[in-house]
Design a protein around this nucleic acid. Structure first.
Lengths: 363, 363
DNA sequence: ATGAAAGCGCTAACAC
DNA sequence: GTGTTAGCGCTTTCAT
C-alpha cells in the first residue's frame, strides 16, 4: 500500500492560521471540563445539590436550583458520562447489528433507532454485517459486549435471505426486528398481515371480482406473511385465490410477472408485495397498452419516497419504519430497565395510501 | 398509534423454558462482573499488578503474570470501560457522521471504519444524516459531544451533492472523507486523479487514438477530479480532449450518453466516471450493435461487486474503500493521541482491474 | 518487581 | 431542602 500525503490544496493563509487555532483549542480540550465540584463551589452549594439539579430531582428549592443552573451555564458544565456509567453500571449505549444497509426500510429504521436512542440519552453502536450466519452474529455480539453496550437491536434483512437457523446469544437484552416467528426474544415488525389485508380489501371494495398477487421471494418471511394474508382475505370474501407468481423484490422481476399477468384480460387488480415490483408491473402494463387504473388497478407495499411520483402515483401500503425503530428502542430500554417482558411480538400498524393507480373496474 | 402485542407465535415449550432461563441470566447480569480487586485476591497479588498485566506493562515477573492471567480467565474478568474512561478522560469512542447510507462506497467505508475502530478498542457512534446543511452537521456534532466521543469521522457523499459551504466546528478531532479541496481538517480520499489516469492510459496503451469520457455531475468534486485528470492525461499524450457528456452517476444516464457516443463510429474507447454509467453505456452499445471490446472499449470507475458479472466483465478502477476507512481511523487516532498533524490530504491508491471490456482497437 | 494510597466525577444512603 | 460520607473500578504516584 502506498498511501500519499500532501499538504492540503486550497489552504489559504486564513485557513492556515485557523489550523493553528484549532490545534490550540484541541490541546486545551485535553484539560477536563468543569466538574460537579466546580459548579458546586461556584453556586455555593454542595455537589449533591448540583447532582440533584442535574438529574431533575424535585427536592431542591427553586431559588437554589436557579443558582445552580446559572453556574452550570456559566461554566459550560456537562456531566461526565464515564463517571455516571461507573456509578450506575450502565453505559447508556445500545448496539445495533444490521445486515444490508442498502434497503430503504432498513435505513429509515436505523435512523429512527438512532434518533430515539439519542433522545433517551443513549448512544448507538453500529456493527454492520454482510452475511447473516450464526458465526458473524456471535462475533458482533462479542464485540458489543466488549464495548459494554446495555442492549442490542438486531435488524434482519428479511428481504434478502432466510436466516431462520441463526441462534442468538442470551446474556444481553435484545430486540429483533424481523418477520420471522418466535425467537424467544422480543420482536418488532410491521403488521404485514394487516397491510396485505388493507391492500386486498381496498381492491375488493372498489368492485374487483378477483385480486392477483405478485409475491416476494419464498425465502422471505415478510413476503410469506403478505401472501398468506392476501389469500385469507380472498378466502373470507369467498374468492378462490389465483396462482401466485413470485418475484425477487426487484423492479425487473415485477416487470416480468407484470407481463404475464397483463396479457391475461381477466386481470383487473394486482397487489404487488412491494413498490418496486409494482413499478415493474406498471411498466409492463404500459407496454401492453393496458390503462392504469382504468383497465388494471395496482397496489404496492412499502410506500417508498418515490412512489408518489410513479406514473400513475401508486396506491400502496405505508410501512411506518420510524415507528418500528422507535418501538424497538422503547422495548429495549424497558428490558434494560429490568422489566424483562415476556417474549412478545410487537406489531406496528400500516396505512393504506390511496393514490391514482387504483379505481373501480370498468364495466 | 395502535401498536399491538401478541405472545410470540411459534414459541414451543422448549423455547418457553429458554425464555425463563434467559430472564434469569439477565437479572444475574445486573450484578457486576468481577473487578480488578477480585482478580487480585484470586491471584494473591495487589490490584496494581493486575492492572499492569491488564495493560501489558513489562515490569511484572513472568510467573506472577501467569498467575494473574489465569485468575482473569477463570473469573472471566473484563476491564470496566467506564472506570478506564473516568481515569483517562477518554471514552474510546468515535463518532461517524454520514450522509446517504445507500452508496456502495459509503457502506464499505463505514464497514472498514467500524472494523478498524473496533480493533483499536474504540466503539463507533453513528449519526446518519439526510441533508448536508451546516445546521444538521452542527446538530450532529452537538449530539456527539454530549456522548463524549473522542473524535469524529465525517463521510460526505460527493456523489450526490455539493456541500462546499458547510463549515465544521473546531473543538473535536476530526477527519473528513471527501474529494473537496482544503477544509483545514485532515482529509482522506481515493486518489481520483490516479485512477482516472490509469483508466485513460490503459486505453491509450492499447492503441486507441482518442478516449471519450462520460463525466459525473459537475456538482461532484470526485467527478471533477476524474475529468480533470483524464483531460490532463490526454494533454500529455498530445491529444485534444473531446467534449465531455455528463451523466448523473445513474445507469440510465450512462445509457443515454452511451447512445450519443455509440452512434459516432469514431468512438472506440470510453472512460465512464463510474461503473453504473459504464453499465448503461454498454447496454446502449449492445443495442446499437457495436461489439465490446472489438468495436468499443469501455472502462469504469469504482469496481462494484457486480462489475465482474457485467456483460462483458468490466475493466475498471478499483477504489479501496476499506483502506479509506482504515486510514481515516488511523489519522483520527493519531489526532486523538495528541499528535495533531498539519492539515493534510491523505490519498488512497487505486488499481486498474483489467477485464474483458477493453482491447486494442480494430484496424 | 510489587504494593499502598489517593483520586478521577458522580450519586445512593444517610444525616440534619 | 440540603450537606456529608462513602465508594463505583481503575490507574498514577510514590514507596518499598
Amino acid at each position: 500500500m502506498n498511501i500519499q500525503e500532501d499538504a492540503a490544496d486550497g489552504v489559504s493563509p486564513a485557513s492556515t492560521s485557523h489550523t493553528s487555532d484549532s490545534a490550540l483549542v484541541r490541546s486545551a480540550r485535553a484539560a477536563r471540563g468543569p466538574s460537579i465540584g466546580d459548579v458546586a463551589r461556584a453556586a455555593g452549594v454542595s455537589a449533591q445539590t448540583v447532582s440533584r439539579v442535574s438529574n431533575g430531582l424535585t427536592n431542591v428549592e427553586e431559588k437554589t436550583k436557579q443558582r445552580v443552573l446559572d453556574a452550570m451555564k456559566q461554566l459550560g458544565y456537562r456531566p461526565n458520562r464515564a463517571a455516571r456509567a461507573l456509578k450506575s453500571g450502565q453505559f447508556k449505549s445500545i448496539g445495533v447489528i444490521m445486515f444490508n444497509l442498502s434497503t430503504y426500510g432498513n435505513r429509515r429504521t436505523l435512523d429512527a433507532i438512532a434518533t430515539a436512542a439519542s433522545q433517551a440519552g443513549y448512544s448507538v453502536n453500529l456493527i454492520p454485517l454482510h452475511d447473516p450466519t450464526t458465526g458473524t452474529v456471535t462475533g458482533a455480539y462479542t464485540r458489543l459486549k466488549e464495548q459494554d453496550v446495555d442492549g442490542v437491536v438486531i435488524i434482519f434483512e428479511a428481504h434478502l435471505f432466510d436466516r431462520a437457523d441463526i441462534t442468538l446469544p442470551e446474556d444481553l437484552p435484545a430486540v429483533v426486528i424481523d418477520s420471522s416467528p418466535g425467537y424467544g426474544y422480543p420482536m418488532v415488525d410491521t403488521d404485514q398481515a394487516e397491510g396485505a389485508r388493507f391492500a386486498t380489501e381496498h381492491l375488493l371494495d372498489l368492485g374487483h371480482q378477483q385480486v392477483w398477487h405478485i409475491g416476494g421471494p419464498v425465502s422471505s418471511f415478510s413476503a410469506r406473511h403478505r401472501e398468506e394474508s392476501w389469500r385469507r382475505t380472498l378466502d373470507e370474501a369467498g374468492i378462490e385465490a389465483p396462482t401466485v407468481l413470485h418475484g425477487d423484490w426487484s423492479t425487473e422481476s415485477g416487470y416480468q410477472v407484470g407481463m404475464e399477468l397483463g396479457r391475461d384480460r381477466e386481470v383487473t387488480a394486482i397487489f404487488a408485495a412491494n413498490d418496486q415490483m409494482a413499478l415493474g408491473a406498471m411498466r409492463a402494463l404500459h407496454e401492453l397498452g393496458r390503462l392504469i387504473p382504468e383497465d388494471v388497478s395496482v397496489v404496492g407495499f412499502d410506500d417508498l419516497e418515490e412512489s408518489t411520483s410513479f406514473w400513475p402515483p401508486l396506491t400502496t401500503i405505508r410501512q411506518d419504519f420510524l415507528a418500528v425503530g422507535r418501538v424497538s428502542i422503547e422495548k429495549l430500554l424497558q428490558q434494560i430497565a429490568g422489566n424483562t417482558p415476556a417474549s412478545v411480538v410487537t406489531t406496528v400498524p400500516t396505512r393504506l395510501m390511496v393514490r391514482q393507480s387504483t379505481a373501480a373496474p370498468a364495466r
